[in-house]
Design a protein around this nucleic acid. Structure first.
Lengths: 227, 227
DNA sequence: CCGATTTAGCGTATGGGATACGCATAAAAG
DNA sequence: CTTTTATGCGTATCCCATACGCTAAATCGG
């Protein structure tokens, strides 16, 4: 038998509690003291199971992601597009996920499962293994970047609604000197930035879809140019 | 005349000093006390010119980016590819740029100049204004995400070299159950993750180039499908 | 059953950080 | 020279992460 007092909590419990706090009040609310209180323990008790707060964050990062959903029927493009949207949705459900300072390449089971899912989508595609990874990495980078953007803007919007409502285009018109930046001025004049309603879900979602479309189009072109 | 004591410093000075600290010792070293010390002032003096540390970070974000370089000759693809690499290089020169929690859409002059530069690259391309913005946003998202990835891994690498050296593939082999994740296992077996030398510049640079290639390919396909 | 050993829980203390508050001081106005 | 106003900044508060060492529980060898 193992000697010594029996542990009453373990790292997984701590991680769970920390995630609960982050879900409820954001990542900023996750302090060792707050998590300990959540569990009914003393702050320093946590350090028996977790070396540092950074390690706790890494653990949270590993277990935050949910299971990837099963891929739909269809060709690789349907599947990969679905995958990208699923990633976005999963991240949106845990907005603090992207705020964790990442520590290295994925090794948690959930993250690997997502990777496997994306590679499964490319199963029947005639690409080299290295190319497949490149495709998935690139797509993943895009999705995470977009998720970050959406999360940030949504957050800034909540903090001060009305700041974006159609004032952004106006503000740009004031700042931008058409002589110095003609290309930008032209686009501004076209009214692209005059979002008169919400910057929220619709427009940003459309941006995401368009970027995704471009990327998948590129993958298709690459495949075609290859065979 | 303006009444009251004359200010000896202003927000721009503070921002400059903060950037100097970040350049030299990283964003984590930027505290109000540290910046004040750098300027030979007392900590609380800064608060006369900057509402909060968050505001200081926003100011840093606005002035961190350098001027965009002039675009090369060539077609839109050369120009946009050059632009993307220039963005990456600029960010790599200030790794802390991406660590700043962003606050909203770009409004600083430098950031707008980069946007203008990208739109200039698309000048002669037959796309709607909204589509151009979509292209630039998507590309920008990709580049920033990739830059973040590279920065993070490089940082983790410095912290513990040898951890990645060809052990990553090995570790994955141990973790991944080929029965549960066949697609991933296949790629692992192909040796894609057995980076025997450095995870650094070369491989990551290649990933970046490939992703960029895919995206630009997608833009080209979209243009073609449009006209 | 008893002391030795090992390990978990945790109280206390330290050092840092952001920032509210108010005082003293400098500069212009009258 | 006095009043007004804005600046520089000392002090103090509150929140964090975390090192250290004590105490208590559980097992082991006798």
């Amino acid at each position: 038998m193992k000697r010594g007092r029996k542990p009453t909590i373990d790292a997984a419990d701590i991680t769970r509690a920390a995630i609960a706090v982050a879900d409820a009040e954001g990542l900023a609310a996750v302090s060792m003291a707050r998590v300990a209180q959540e569990m009914g323990n003393a702050t320093m008790a946590l350090y028996r199971h977790v070396k540092s707060k950074d390690e706790l964050l890494a653990l949270m990062w590993d277990s935050a992601m949910e299971e990837p959903p099963p891929l739909p029927d269809g060709d690789w493009r349907d599947k990969l597009g679905f995958w990208a949207k699923a990633v976005l949705a999963a991240i949106r459900r845990r907005p603090w996920f992207l705020q964790i300072p990442i520590s290295g390449p994925p090794s948690g089971p959930k993250n690997l499962a997502w990777l496997d899912s994306a590679l499964t989508a490319l199963e029947d595609v005639p690409l080299e293994p290295g190319e497949k990874i490149g495709v998935v990495m690139g797509l993943s980078t895009f999705v995470q970047g977009e998720a970050r953007l959406i999360g940030t803007l949504a957050q800034g919007f909540e903090a001060d609604p009305g700041r974006f409502n159609h004032q952004y285009g106006q503000r740009l018109r004031e700042i931008v000197d058409p002589g110095a930046m003609p290309a930008l001025a032209e686009i501004i004049e076209a009214g692209v930035f005059d979002l008169d309603d919400v910057v929220r879900a619709e427009d940003l979602g459309a941006d995401f879809d368009f970027g995704l479309h471009l990327f998948l189009e590129g993958v298709a072109a690459h495949i075609k140019g290859r065979s």
